[in-house]
Amino acid sequence: MAYRIRRLILPLCAALFGTLAQADESIVLASTTSTDQSGLFGYILPRFEAKTGIKVKVVALGTGQALDTARRGDADVVLVHDRPAEDKFVAEGWGVERRDVMYNDFIVIGPKTDAAQVKATKDVVDGFRRIAAGSAPFISRGDKSGTHAAELRFWKTAGIDPKAWSGYKEAGAGMGPTLNMSAALGGYTLADRGTWLSFKNRQDLEIVLAGDKRLFNPYGVMLVNPAKYPHVKKDAGMKFVDWITSREGQETIAAYKINGEQLFFPDAKN
């Protein structure tokens, strides 16, 4: 009987684990939910993979988590959007070869009724003041992401301590769940345009403010420092950094559209 079980289990294990092992060359890219969930990676990565044969495994996190993941050595390349945090990351020696890649913009999302009259202004800081003065809640990412960091900068500029305001709710989640929550609560939130355009459960939400220069949201790419972590796939990682900032990579980014609308604007300095 024991023999029979052994005869059954060993090949089963071999079959299961065997198929899970992959020999292809691959890199781990720690990035943000905004780039992944907007569908950008789904569009550009197959082109990179076809050209180089390198598989890119995207782990989508908030910017802060993505950088922390890279600090632990669990990623080869990072693509995030929080310039101050990126500079700190490079200054501390965790990342090298930081380059600008592209930008998109943040937008303020709110209920169509717009009780706080945010649509009446073009100034994001003024918009935030109006929200804080109104009765509808504001849903914050609250997850140390790039979007969260940008939001906190706007509150600071407006001179408001949001935590002192009862309408301020921290979702502690990615952009999508935060938008879901805003839709459910009829609240305002700060979102990146890419996620918004591909977001489906909008209900009564719409864009109430966009276009302010301060809503500019730049993305940077960098290689995790191979001197800190020798296992980092330096060559394959650099191929990705080079490609995404190359003319071809930049044109691919510009070509990605949802409903005819371009989401990301390449701005690599070649």
Binding site: V58, M175, G176, R202
Partner: peptide, 24 residues
């Protein structure tokens, strides 16, 4: 697993992701 598409994305992590994207 990191919910990597085509590599570590399972039914449950895909559900979590699609919910996050509002694709109910």
């Amino acid at each position: 697993g990191g919910n990597i598409e085509g590599f570590t994305r399972t039914m449950t992590t895909a559900i979590a992701l699609e919910t996050a994207k509002g694709d109910l």
